[in-house]
Amino acid sequence: MNVRQVIPKDAIPSVENPTFVDDHSPPDDDVVGIQLGGEARAYPIRYLNYHEIANDSLGGVPIAVTWCPLCGSAVVYDRRPPAESLPEGADDPGTLEFGVSGKLADDDLVMYDRETGSEWKQSLGEAIAGQLEGASLRVLPATTTTWDQFRKSHDDAVIMAEPGGKSEAASESDSPAEIEYQDDPYREYVEGDGFGLGAHRGEGAGREWEREDIAAKEPVLGLVLGGEALGVPRTRIEDAGGVVTAIVGGESVVVFATADGLHAYRDPGYDWTSTRGGVRADGVMWDPTTGAPLDNPATHVAANRESLERLPAQRLFAFAWYDDHGDAFFESG
């Protein structure tokens, strides 16, 4: 793992105790959405480009909504490291608050906690240096979708308001500048062929990628269950008609690709079929975005099924998943 200091600590400011509004424009803004304890909140990626971490509490759970623009990595963590993950002899630090260290580990955001100063690799949720080295954070079920779609799925959803302030991501130097949220400092990077910090800064093609079956910046939905990791590339889901199933850590999972995102649920053991109208299983149609069964308006038959259970997962680029988990990619057939 290559760890290097790239910008000053806190030059990209995390968000503490964010405020929320009921409406937001544009409706097609990409967001990280999460529902806990009957509450639903969305965090615009357009804002997270300039802050990368939002420390919040939802449904009584302290959460960290994290985003690494270089890795396209969106993960929501519980800010309380499980006791069993702590290094031997370490005291339980309780609830942590995370900031942006200014370091990168294999081009991924390195967070730090303000309680112990330990450093954490964002895409792994593991402490890589400091008092808590070796500890891990629990991934929470979340989705990356559009604000419009998330609001349709959660009538009472609210969305993070503009945090404001200054950020290095808004600057052409290492010194923070006033944020203009309508700008996208990573558009050229995402649309270009290269990947990594060098490609973002225009310092050449960036790192090398030797795989031909998956593009380096292919969106992947990453699952780590029962000690086993599996990354499911978007194109492999699309090639299968928008739905694939797999066994991960002894768990049966079903993964959907929709126009707005990638979604993973615990599979009750249904036989999933992709049709013109969507996805069908157990005699009814299903909404891949929410995991909810759909009533049949033509026959007035109610879909008397329970909604699928969303699994803890992360969305990230293929190269970042490979950095963390090697060749643990879903293979069709």
Rank of each mutant, 00 (worst) to 15 (best):
A42I: 14
T258M: 13
Q35L: 14
E191M: 15
H325M: 13
D184V: 04
H51T: 12
V100C: 12
E218V: 04
N55W: 13
E178Q: 05
G117T: 01
F317L: 13
D239V: 07
A169V: 14
A313L: 05
G192M: 06
V254N: 02
T289C: 14
G242R: 03
D78Y: 01
A83C: 03
P163R: 11
V21F: 05
G164D: 14
G231M: 13
A281G: 01
E228T: 10
D155G: 14
P233E: 08
P163L: 11
P82R: 04
H51E: 09
D156G: 08
G227A: 05
L230D: 05
S175I: 14
V190F: 06
N17H: 15
A303V: 08
S175D: 15
G37Y: 07
E210H: 06
P81M: 14
H154T: 04
V75Y: 02
D174R: 15
G250Y: 06
G204Q: 08
V255R: 11
G242Y: 02
I214T: 10
V100A: 07
A240R: 10
P141W: 12
E97D: 11
P69N: 06
E168L: 08
A216P: 05
R310W: 12
S73V: 06
V243Q: 01
G37C: 08
E172P: 02
P44H: 15
H200V: 00
S252F: 02
E172A: 12
A259F: 10
D10C: 08
M1H: 15
R315V: 06
T116P: 02
V220K: 06
T275I: 11
R114E: 15
S118G: 14
V21Q: 11
A318C: 11
L137F: 02
K121C: 01
E115D: 15
E210M: 05
S136W: 02
G194K: 07
G72V: 11
Y181N: 09
T144W: 08
